[in-house]
Design a protein around this nucleic acid. Structure first.
Lengths: 342, 342
DNA sequence: TTGAAAGCGCTAACAA
DNA sequence: TTGTTAGCGCTTTCAA
């Protein structure tokens, strides 16, 4: 009686498949990779054995031998709806082009630089940076080693491509919408030092000027969280309510909404509120937040395409791709003076 | 004039360092890994050259040669605060023990099974499953190939360890707190088919019975999102308000809170609300949600320890670790009958 | 303390 | 169509 296999936990290798199928490793390699060079009969047999053994190629060995990893590294913040959306798109776009994706998280205890180093250790061929950015110098160095695209925020490192949605357009769209509704007293709760905050702030000031709105642009110090919005709502009420507020992002807008509700300020009755990102929370049926939408999947697709063409040797000049945002009209904005019925 | 290095983008290898330092590759390997076997002088010199060249070991080649990857794979849902918290803890715990972490996301377009396969292709030595679970059969197979721990939810695959926080305790704590406050009419908005929902539902029923609360336990169909809580709030108001509600998680509780606010139901004046998870949103100063806390970092630490000891050959019998939750008292719960002043 | 040599699982010429 | 032969960058005996 043959002694039962002690199941050494060692995953089957190419060699195992080759032996079992009675062919060489090279031939198995050809079959597994799906490249031409094997007869149909062999192909079937090898595939059968591989299946039977539960063979899965070792991605590291594969890259070592091939001299390339076909790996796209992504740094991102966990628990950021926008990043989650883009990451999903990256998986889809990368896999469609034969690349694998490896994620490296940036957290409070794991600095962006650490996340990037991990990517390098994996020998990614290219990187997409979603999270908080590494220092400019580090980014520049990284960009010299491999194709890098920063998604969602501008970057001044010349070595990195940028794919983002125009903040000027997004803010412009929002302000235009509000002005069209008759609003003249519009405030902006900014994102502090968050990604894109400076751009949106500047865009708000520019729009304010362009539409000839009265006084100085009113910009409140805010941030990327609900608390920031809530604090701003309190301050707005204390200092004098505008008729409309543009928030840095949806979370901030939710904070505004919630605090206004608590303070007895009706939205959109007294104040209209516009968010940014069109994250899932904006779609909540009881919030119905009007917001600026950045298409994460499109961003992802463009970023991956960029990387793939760089990898293919492209040295295209334009290193910045600016996508168009869309305004999603929901229930938190209304005309300043309600039209009398009939 | 020596022609300027064309910067072939090839990262420096061990060999490069060895040549430059005038020693063998083996010696460099010893130095880089920090194992004994090199003189202090050599060590310094090699380290200097490595630094100068910007050498970073190729993690794949390393694992290939060493026969092990020291890699812990993690599947998780992006954009889940609880997962983000645990993941952060995993990074810390794993790196402290000399393991690397590789993340594999489960999204709407990327099934749990796909996420797990990726982990296998990377030749992870062990896996932590946070996300939606793979089918029981798949989990069982996975558990037979490598040490697996499921975090945060029970699993009936005997081959996988489980590390989670006791739902019975968590719900028990919450109900006890409410009963202590004088509440007798307590409802539960469940999590539908979400992770842990069934356990919390059962625990609620058991607590209800244990405390001898009147009538049948009132359980409303809910879910893991704000909308689910909001819908439940509407239904509760329509069918008759309880004096307290225990939500499946914080997001659900926030939905309840928000809708109650809109409906003019005061919290905790008329209804007390308890959440679950102690996610960042529960800490918002304007919400101050009383909630059950599951220590994500502790969960992570225990899970990693478990994995490491399994990898070291442990075949410990107890395959389930149950941690204790804590109740975080904030502002959304209050005594049923306010004590008259003085 | 150091180096030579074999080999991890795979790919990629090149021969047969 | 198939097999042989080198490596990829590293670790790991085993000698020197």
């Amino acid at each position: 009686m043959s002694k039962p296999d002690p199941k050494p936990a060692r995953p089957p290798t190419l060699e195992d498949v080759a032996m079992r199928a009675g062919v060489s490793r090279a031939l198995v390699s050809i079959v597994i990779r799906g490249v031409p060079g094997a007869s149909e009969a062999t192909r079937q047999r090898v595939l059968g054995v591989a299946e039977e053994l539960g063979y899965r190629p070792d991605s590291r060995a594969r890259l070592l031998a091939a001299g390339r990893s076909r790996l796209i590294g992504v740094t991102l913040a966990l628990n950021n709806p926008f990043h989650a959306d883009v990451a999903e798109g990256i998986y889809a776009a990368a896999e469609a082009r034969g690349y694998q994706v490896v994620l490296s998280a940036v957290t409070g205890r794991r600095a962006p630089q650490r996340a990037v180093e991990t990517l390098l250790d994996y020998r990614c061929e290219a990187a997409i940076l979603l999270g908080p950015l590494v220092a400019r110098r580090v980014l520049q160095e990284l960009g010299q080693r491999l194709p890098v695209v920063v998604v969602g925020q501008p970057s001044h490192a010349p070595a990195a491509d940028v794919v983002r949605v125009s903040d000027a357009d997004g803010v412009g769209l929002a302000v235009e919408h509000l002005v069209g509704l008759g609003h003249r007293l519009i405030a902006h709760v900014d994102g502090g030092r968050s990604a894109g905050a400076a751009q949106r702030r500047a865009a708000f000031r520019a729009s304010h000027r362009r539409h000839g709105l009265p006084g100085q642009p009113r910009v409140l110090a805010g941030g990327p969280g609900e608390e920031d919005g809530a604090a701003a709502a309190r301050q707005l009420l204390a200092d004098g309510l505008p008729t409309a507020v543009l928030a840095y992002n949806d979370a901030c807008a939710v904070g505004l909404l919630d605090m206004f509700l608590r303070l007895g300020v009706s939205v959109p009755g007294q104040v209209s509120v516009v968010g940014y990102d069109d994250s899932p929370v904006a779609r909540l049926s009881y919030l119905r937040l009007t917001t600026v939408s950045q298409d994460g999947h499109q961003l992802a697709t463009v970023a991956v395409e960029r990387l793939v063409s760089r990898l293919a040797g492209s040295t295209a000049a334009s290193r910045q791709v600016l996508l168009r945002p869309a305004l999603v009209l929901r229930g938190t904005t209304a005309a300043l003076l309600p039209v009398p019925a009939q």
